[in-house]
């Protein structure tokens, strides 16, 4: 066999593998969307769930998912940003940074159910936060922190070393160089990373089952005082998210339309994550364009 045919075969095999991956994705997406989209309606997206009767919605779960995502990002983004800046801009390569990097690596490969059980023991039981949005947000922070740190560090790495030299040569301190030169230039790529990790957090179930809980008490959407128990903003209430809801009704749902609700919820979840992904690309590109031309 000469090298030309060998090359052709290799390319053919690679195409085949790539096509297979795309096929799996399309099959999954197709199945979920085809079986789920017919269930979608304004009522489904806004009404509260029903435990025993037909016609429940996922309004509360949907809100919980977004609120938890928001809180988890609020906690994890500043920490991840600080860690990434330290690791990439300041830290020298020594045993300490090697240890930190290894810790991040291990943390990012922890199964999320383990993170969830740890969150249950520590936040729910030990710190007495109970099954609450706050416990869930902390658990999600643990889950999200390593991935987000690494993605921000990668964003900083894409900014050329010559930019740092340029800042320092103007008499800026390292901190000024990072905050005024490097971070603004890295914003598009950091934003993309944040949105993509938001997609992962949004779909997370295992880490939340034992932390944010599996019940979604009815909410009064007129009450925005975070200290009231029926207020959507109250961070101490149990909050089943959409992903947990799907798991729950599939394992113990007793409403007559459980299957339809599960399909509809899956479709909502997948659509939300698709929107996150496309938004990340679109915003990243747009911001980059605005920085480089205009």
């Amino acid at each position: 066999m000469n090298s030309k045919t060998q090359n052709k075969m290799a390319i053919g095999a690679l195409y085949g593998i790539a096509g297979f991956v795309v096929l799996i994705l399309l099959a999954l997406l197709g199945y979920i969307l085809i079986s789920g989209t017919p269930q979608l309606s304004w009522h489904f997206l806004t009404a509260p769930a029903k435990a025993f009767l037909k016609g429940g919605g996922v309004g509360v779960q949907l809100f919980n998912s977004f609120y938890l995502l928001f809180l988890a990002m609020l906690i994890s983004f500043p920490i991840a940003l600080g860690a990434a800046i330290y690791l990439y801009e300041y830290a020298k390569n020594n045993w300490l940074t090697t240890t930190i990097r290894t810790a991040i690596e291990i943390l990012s490969s922890l199964p999320s159910v383990v993170v969830g059980l740890f969150g249950f023991l520590f936040f729910v039981v030990k710190l007495r936060l109970g099954f609450s949005i706050l416990s869930g947000a902390f658990a999600l922070t643990f889950f999200n922190l390593p991935l987000l740190t690494r993605s921000i560090e990668d964003s900083l790495r894409t900014i050329s070393e010559t930019q740092r030299e340029g800042g320092l040569a103007l008499g800026l301190s390292r901190w000024e160089t990072v905050t005024k030169v490097i971070l603004p230039a890295a914003v598009p790529s950091i934003l993309t990373g944040v949105i993509l990790s938001a997609g992962r957090v949004f779909g997370e179930a295992a880490a939340l089952i034992y932390t944010a809980g599996q019940s979604a008490p009815a909410l009064n959407f007129m009450d925005w005082n975070p200290f009231n128990i029926s207020s959507p903003l109250n961070p101490m209430r149990p909050a089943e998210t959409l992903a947990v809801h799907i798991w729950k009704i599939n394992s113990e749902g007793i409403m007559p339309d459980a299957k339809a609700i599960s399909s509809g919820s899956s479709a909502v979840l997948v659509l939300a994550i698709l929107i996150f992904n496309f938004a990340a690309r679109y915003l990243g590109k747009r911001l980059y364009k605005r920085l480089t031309s205009a």
Partner: peptide, 20 residues
């Protein structure tokens, strides 16, 4: 050193304008 670099400026091999 920051004050000193303001008195002794530098231009590099590859043009490095900031993303501003």
């Amino acid at each position: 050193v920051y004050e000193m670099r303001r008195r002794v400026g530098m231009v590099f091999q590859r043009p490095n304008p900031f993303a501003k």
